[in-house]
Design a protein around this nucleic acid. Structure first.
Lengths: 339, 339
DNA sequence: CTGTTAGCGCGTTCAC
DNA sequence: GTGAACGCGCTAACAG
């Protein structure tokens, strides 16, 4: 066994492909990135050479030279929220046919964590950034603006987005649901948010709730705001707590993931008639809502579509097209038996 | 306005930091990647210079030189499955304190799509790959083996993993649940899988189901295998179909996401007593199971822990430590009122 | 503990 | 439609 055989097999480079195909490296580069600018016959020879040699391009080299990668970085609080997973799925599907890839990190709703993640992400020289948060540390804002890449915020629609905001109005959604409950004649409407999620989205929803309460001429009462654990079990437990502490409550608006469904199940178990004893409303229209008894009144937020719009907007921006700075994809009030 | 003012501001490079701190570039590099090998005082000067100049490293350059990136690529069928989202969350949390990032793509259970994605991913020169599939195209296997990076498969525990497999046995899980139902005296046990998910995991589960049926001395009957849409609504609809087509069925094992819960809800609605008229079992123990009436018998799969083990294993391998090629994290049969 | 040297593999720029 | 030359910013290898 001589030295040649023992040496680590050198990586197949673009130059090797070029030699094999009898062209210059740059022609291979063009055949890969802009096939239309290369003669079909040349392209064919290059494709064959790539096949024969098993060539796999090196994006690190390409990114270094071109000063930009094909990575889209995404920072979300958590993947396990069904709503966020839907959005990610939408982005993923939108980017799949393109050459861009999705780099994901979870911040757990901490602005400091977001900043830390972002700093590391920017070292990848991403071509775009997606943030679910709309409130950031000053340093974050500085880093993002300085990077010069498209930045998409998806959590809410702030009046002045950092760059582009795509989503819906948490304020309007919560106001709309609360107004619906008030219009049905409920007088003691409780509002439930997730403990772990006291962020700007929650704040906006509380603002919306208060606005509707005021408009309906009902008394403002912060004792009707309740924190809750997430999930079905959290919702069930919180409903029991609410009715124990404030028996006059006749409607509850659950804004946490699946908590509304949990409340319906708790009512069945306890024998509380819905909506006669207490009306229930949920946030995010998952498949569960229409299978419950009674069916659950919810807000349908177009999470998957938001993801798709994020992908489209990134692609448009990278192609140099103008895009709307604020894209409101709205929401839908799904009134069902529980209210 | 002269030329200098109009020129795009040149990126701050490591060399600039080095000059500012009065050291060589390599020392800056070391201060960032292996701080322990640099004197504290030097490190302090470098940190200050980085602060002052607002330096953000360039991973493309680093990866090019070191021939390896800090990217872990992950290919899963979909993010919207709660089970997969939990696993991703586990990986994400495990990698967060390290310098590694997670690049995600969804393959929709297509091997061809997986190959396409992988080919693009390998151009990033990732430091590790995670695949939920355990069955791949030949080309995929070749690419992965040739890349020389750690490859973790998570969907099942094949006898001969490509590299490392981390997860649980779909066969044993399904066998265990079916055996439980048989031991309770049910004689006509139906098995429900997701239409869209006829993959090797489903096949293993069907094998497990059949093994338990045979061992219990029950007749083999492929007419008891039913495809179903996903989600609560899919499960509800499928249960109705099963009892209409095969009224003798006295137990149904739902292996799709949330379909078992949908079946329980359908029974409540139709007035079918569970488990007297029909017993119901589900797959994956979400919070919903214990909130239903009756509570739902399920299989608890440690999805989040699997994600954590994936992260740990990648880190171990990259640190040059040996790791087990097959890590069985098991499952737990959660017997509740529905069976 | 710190520095010198020498590329990594590709794409931009400009010429033909 | 194709090519030559150069350098992107960083770190491996070795020396001191």
């Amino acid at each position: 066994m001589n030295k040649k055989e023992r040496a680590a097999p050198r990586e197949v480079r673009m130059a090797d492909v070029a030699k094999e195909a009898g062209v210059a490296p740059i022609t291979v580069s063009r055949a890969l990135s802009t096939p239309d600018t290369v003669a079909p016959e040349t392209r064919r020879r290059i494709d064959e050479a790539i096949q024969r040699l098993g060539y796999v391009g090196n994006r690190a080299a390409g990114s270094l030279k071109s000063r930009r990668s094909n990575l889209v970085v995404v920072v979300i609080p958590s993947v396990t929220h069904h709503s966020l997973a839907s959005m990610i799925q939408g982005i993923s599907e939108g980017l799949a046919p393109t050459g861009y890839h999705l780099v994901l990190a979870t911040s757990g709703d901490s602005r400091e964590e977001e900043e830390k993640i972002l700093r590391a992400f920017l070292a990848q020289r991403p071509c775009a950034a997606v943030l679910h948060n709309t409130v950031h540390t000053d340093e974050c804002r500085r880093l993002l603006l300085q990077s010069g890449i498209p930045v998409i915020e998806t959590g809410d629609l702030p009046p002045e987005p950092l760059d582009v905001a795509i989503g819906y109005s948490n304020f309007e959604a919560a106001r709309s649901m609360t107004a619906h409950l008030a219009s049905r004649g409920y007088r003691h409407i409780a509002f439930v948010y997730r403990w772990a999620e006291r962020n700007e989205r929650t704040d906006e929803r509380i603002r919306g709730y208060r606005a509707a309460i005021a408009q309906a001429g009902l008394p403002s009462d912060d004792g009707l705001l309740f924190g809750s654990d997430a999930g079905v079990a959290g919702g069930a437990q919180t409903l029991r707590r609410i009715l124990a502490e404030r028996p006059e409550v006749d409607a509850v608006f659950f804004t946490g993931n699946d908590t509304g469904a949990g409340a319906i199940l708790a009512c069945r178990r306890e024998g509380w008639a819905v909506p006669q004893r207490v009306a229930i409303a949920g946030y995010d229209d998952t498949g569960l809502a229409i299978c419950l008894q009674p069916t659950l009144t919810t807000l349908r937020i177009p999470r998957h579509e938001i993801g798709g719009a994020v992908a489209d907007t990134i692609l448009a921006r990278l192609a140099g097209r103008e895009v709307a700075r604020r894209q409101d994809l709205g929401f839908e009030l799904c009134v069902r038996e529980s209210s």
